[in-house]
C-alpha cells in the first residue's frame, strides 16, 4: 500500500522523474517530448509494475526526458518502494 508521496529520478537527459502519491484508483500522468509515441507503452509498464506490487490504487506522475524502458522501470519501482516504505520496514 502506498502510504506517502515519494519521488525517484531526475529531469536530466535520458532519465525521468517519477512521483507517486496515494490514490483510490490507478491514475497515470505522463509528460515528455515524444508523448504520443510513448504514452501507451509507459501506461502499460506502470500497470504491470503496480500489479507486481499487488497495488490496485496509486497516482503515478512521470516526467520523461528520454528515458529507456529499463530506466523507467527502475525509477517507477524506486518511487513505489519509497512510497510504500513505512509498511515494508
Amino acid at each position: 500500500m502506498i502510504v506517502r508521496s515519494a519521488n525517484a529520478g531526475t529531469l536530466e537527459s535520458s532519465d525521468c522523474l517519477v512521483t507517486v502519491m496515494p490514490a483510490e484508483t490507478i491514475e497515470i500522468e505522463y509528460a515528455g517530448a515524444n508523448e504520443k509515441i510513448f504514452r501507451g507503452r509507459t501506461e502499460d509498464l506502470v500497470r504491470e509494475i503496480l500489479g507486481k506490487y499487488s497495488l490496485t490504487g496509486g497516482a503515478v506522475k512521470i516526467q520523461d526526458s528520454g528515458a529507456l524502458e529499463v530506466t523507467l522501470r527502475a525509477r517507477i519501482e524506486t518511487a513505489l518502494e519509497r512510497a510504500m516504505e513505512a509498511i515494508a520496514r
Binding site: G9, R73, A74, E81
Partner: peptide, 15 residues
C-alpha cells in the same frame, strides 16, 4: 543507494 541498485539491476536484466 536504493535508486542506484534499481537502475543497475534493471540495466543488467534488460540492456
Amino acid at each position: 543507494k536504493d535508486a542506484a541498485r534499481k537502475i543497475v539491476s534493471s540495466f543488467l536484466r534488460g540492456f
